[in-house]
Design a protein around this nucleic acid. Structure first.
Length: 321
DNA sequence: AACTCAAACAACCGCAAAAAT
DNA sequence: AATTTTTGCGGTTGTTTGAGT
């Protein structure tokens, strides 16, 4: 990948120094990243302005902090947002609004910036498609009564499929913890390992002393350390409320049921809990092709471990008290 | 092959709160 | 107690990339 250069083209890249402070701005170079990682590894984080100076980085402390927290920190988890994470983001956003850092606390490894980006690029896009405000009651109801139940359906379907598969293959490949070798390359700019036959993307600090640079990675493949397992593992101590959510949303009429004339008349739909479709929001629009939550577009097959989710639900209840 | 457009995301900014002096 | 510095948060912007035409 080419070096991204903010404010100038790659070809015309010149280090972008702030006018009178001799400070660099724009994308971080690999050298800068390594300098920051090495310094923090030795001296720890905090006091970012003096850290930047001491490390010899011509960056503001603010910039160093951001780079570390959002990108270089060992426990930053990268890659696609899973279905369960999507569900959790929707749920938590409905509770707390744009309090990204608070939401991020419940998605270990995810940064507030990443969640915010997800919300803006995915969720707000759909609000735009539906021609309604992302903060409007109707859009929120669309999420709660249509998209979230559908997400739950897909999560449950995936869980069912996974359990079926694991049963039929119990004495076979996966349970035998087959060792697989994958071709991988290290992307210097992004500082992440991209594994070809998987979705795994790793931060250098996660790479356990792997040499920077292209390498062959041999990993012991078990369900627990697949991308699926990685998700659940990250919740080892901080658990997710997804099972509670899935239980809850299972009781919410799904999009099909919700609109079945035998249960609810069309006029009822029009005057749905918040007048969901009374202001030009069209069900067919909501259900139209291209809605990833409904259609299953950007799905990952990963599943969270649902065993400990009660705990986080309790945490959430405490938070709302 | 060239172009356009939208998605994704890294990074910046301003502001407010917290901590240090 | 007042002032300065640092930290954290949310909003926004700009670049790259990939898909579609």
């Amino acid at each position: 990948m080419d070096v991204k250069v903010r404010g100038s083209t790659s070809a015309a890249f010149q280090p972008d120094f702030a006018d009178d402070h001799d400070l660099r701005r724009g994308p971080w170079t690999v050298d800068e990243d390594l300098t920051l990682i090495n310094y923090i590894t030795t001296h720890g984080e905090g006091r970012w302005n003096s850290l930047a100076r001491s490390a010899g980085l011509k960056r503001t402390g603010k910039s160093c902090r951001l780079r570390w927290l959002n990108y270089l920190r060992p426990d930053v988890r990268r890659g696609n947002i899973t279905l369960e994470e999507q569900l959790l983001i929707l749920e938590l956003h409905s509770r707390w609004g744009n309090r990204w850092s608070k939401i991020a606390q419940y998605l270990p490894g995810r940064t507030d910036n990443e969640i915010k980006n997800y919300w803006r690029t995915r969720v707000q896009k759909h609000a735009k498609q539906l021609k309604c405000d992302v903060n409007s009651k109707q859009f929120k109801d669309t999420m709660r009564y249509l998209w979230m139940p559908r997400l739950v359906e897909r999560i449950q379907a995936a869980a069912t499929a996974a359990s079926t598969a694991s049963t039929t293959a119990s004495s076979q490949t996966l349970s035998a913890a087959t060792t697989v070798t994958t071709n991988s390359t290290y992307n210097h700019y992004n500082n992440k390992m991209e594994v070809e036959n998987g979705n795994m993307m790793m931060n250098p600090a996660i790479m356990n002393n792997n040499e920077f640079g292209g390498s062959q990675v041999t990993q012991s493949y078990t369900p627990e350390n697949s991308s699926t397992g990685a998700s659940s593992e990250s919740f080892g101590t901080q658990v997710s409320p997804v099972s509670e959510l899935t239980d809850y949303y299972s009781t919410v009429p799904n999009s099909q049921d919700y609109y079945q004339p035998s249960q609810i008349s069309y006029s009822d739909c029009i005057t749905s809990p918040s007048g969901l479709y009374s202001q030009g929001l069209d069900y067919s629009q909501v259900m139209e092709a291209g809605n990833p939550w409904i259609q299953g577009g950007d799905t990952l097959d990963s599943l969270w471990n649902v065993e400990n989710m009660m705990f986080l639900q309790q945490q959430l209840n405490i938070d709302t008290m």
